[in-house]
Design a protein around this nucleic acid. Structure first.
Length: 105
DNA sequence: TAAGTTGGGAGAACCC
DNA sequence: GGGGTTCTCCCAACTT
């Protein structure tokens, strides 16, 4: 899935969310559609994986990854939820991600 | 107080 | 090479 070169951060995050093996790092919030939350202890693992995916020289951290996440708030793709380590995909972003995800299966 | 989390600005990398 | 977009990095403030 998303096996291209120009993988964007929210593509990668969606992959993590759809992977049951990554549920201990990041998972959907069952009570809110499109809302997901990072594990307080494993959030850096997700970031490290993202850094590897991009082939970064320096190790990625949650701090830096959340900075990129904040950029999505400006473009309206992902919004920050007023809870710790919690973000929300916009309806539109979620729809295109799901379409892309199903199409790549 | 310390640790963890969030936010801003500037610069680098990539694509047209 | 220029312009626009996305991502990375460092620093400071806020919350628990």
């Amino acid at each position: 899935m998303f096996a291209g070169r120009k993988v964007r951060l929210f593509h990668f995050l969606f992959e993590m969310l759809e992977d049951p093996n990554m549920a201990h790092c990041v998972s959907w919030v069952p009570t809110d559609a499109g809302v997901f939350r990072f594990s307080s202890t494993n959030k850096d693992q997700v970031a490290a994986l993202w850094g590897q995916r991009k082939g970064n020289k320096r190790p990625m951290t949650y701090q830096k990854m959340s900075r990129a996440l904040r950029n999505y708030s400006r473009s309206g793709e992902i919004f920050k939820v007023k809870k710790k380590l919690t973000y929300q995909f916009s309806r539109d972003t979620l729809m295109s991600l799901r379409k892309c995800h199903r199409g790549s299966l």
